[in-house]
Amino acid sequence: MSGNSMKRALIGHLPAIAPVDHLVHLFGFVMQHRRLPRRRHPLFNDVIHRIKASTEIVDPLRVYVTDKEFVKTFVRDRVGDQHNVPTHTVFRRVDDVDIDLIPDRCVIKPTHASGQIITRKHGEPVDMARIRGWFALNYYRTSRERNYKNLQPKVIVEPLIFNDAEITDYKVFCFQGRPRLIQVDYGRHSRHVRKFYDLDWREQGFGLVYERGSIDFERPANLDRMLQVATRLSQGFSLVRVDMYSDGESVLIGEMTNCPSGAMGVFSPPDGERLASAMIFGDLTDEMLHTQVA
C-alpha cells in the first residue's frame, strides 16, 4: 500500500465529526505548505482552507452544486439548459449499471466524488467493476470536504462533447459574483498542462500544480459570453470556480468547484500565489475578506 493510500485509509477511520475534519484540513495544510494558514493577509490557499474549515462549505447551495447531476438543474435555472452538457443516463443503484446503456463514445463519472472519470472513445471495454465500486465510495471520508458527506451515490453518463475526447477546460475563478482569473487546462488524460489568463486574455507568469507547457491558447471567440455565464452562476458564492467548455460558439458548464485544489495547490514560482491572490481578491482588507468568507 502506498503512502497516500495509507493516509486515506487512516483518515477514513477517523470519527466523522467537524472538529476532526478541521484537524485533518489543518494538518494537511501545514504538511503541504510548511506554514499555518494565515488569518492576516490571507492568500489563495488560505481562503480556500477557510471555506473548507468553516460552516460555509455546508451551505445548502454549495452542497447542491457539488452533486454533478443536481448542478445541471442549478445551471438550467440560472442561465438556461443550453449551457448544460447533455445527460445520457444516470445510474441510481448499483444494480442499474448496464453496459448496454453506455454509448461507445461517452464520459462516465460518479456524481458524488471528485477526480474519478472514465472516458470511452471508440467502444472499448469498460471497467464495470470500477463503476459499480463507485457506489461504495464516500469521498468525504478520505477528503473530509463536508459538502460531499451526505451526497447520494450515483453514476452519470454524458456524451463526448464537441466530438472530441481531449478538449480544453476553461475554469473561471469568481469572487463576490465577478470573474477574476481564468485557468486553462489541456491534456488532462495525457500530458496535463495549465495556464492562467486575466480577463483580457493576457497570459500570467505563474503555474499551479501542473507545468505551463508551450501551448499558446487562443482567446475563445465567445469569451465575453463565457464570462457573462460565470458571473450569473457565481452569484451567492464568496469564492467559487466555474468550470466550462467552449468551441468558440457554445458554452457548456462542467461543474462548480467549491475548493479548487483543496487548498493544497502549490504555485510555481512560489510568488505566483501572491500574484493570483491579488488578481482574485484585489485590495480587500482582512476584515472585508472575513465578512465575505465565513
Rank of each mutant, 00 (worst) to 15 (best):
M1S: 09
N4H: 06
N4M: 04
R8D: 15
R8Q: 13
L10I: 11
G12Y: 12
L14N: 00
H22C: 02
V24P: 01
V30L: 00
V30M: 01
V30F: 00
H33K: 14
R39P: 01
N45Y: 03
I51L: 13
A53C: 15
D59I: 07
P60W: 14
V65Y: 08
T66R: 12
D67K: 09
R76S: 14
G80Q: 10
G80I: 13
D81Y: 05
N84P: 11
V85Y: 02
F91D: 05
V97Y: 03
I99E: 14
D100H: 15
D100A: 11
R105L: 07
I108Y: 01
I117Q: 08
T119G: 00
K121E: 12
K121P: 00
P125T: 13
M128R: 06
W134E: 15
F135D: 10
A136G: 08
Y140V: 06
S143I: 00
E145Q: 10
N147W: 01
Y148L: 06
Q152E: 14
V155P: 12
E158D: 07
E158F: 01
I161C: 00
N163P: 02
T168P: 00
F173P: 01
I182V: 05
V184P: 02
G187N: 01
H189C: 04
H189K: 14
R191E: 15
H192N: 04
F196C: 10
F196E: 10
F196R: 11
Y197S: 09
W201D: 11
F206E: 14
L208V: 07
V209D: 13
R212E: 15
D216I: 06
R219H: 08
A221Y: 13
N222H: 15
R225T: 09
M226E: 05
Q228L: 07
A230I: 12
G236M: 06
F237I: 05
F237G: 10
Y245E: 07
G248R: 03
T257M: 02
N258V: 08
N258F: 05
G262E: 10
A263L: 04
A263P: 04
P270G: 03
D271E: 13
E273Y: 08
S277P: 07
V293I: 15
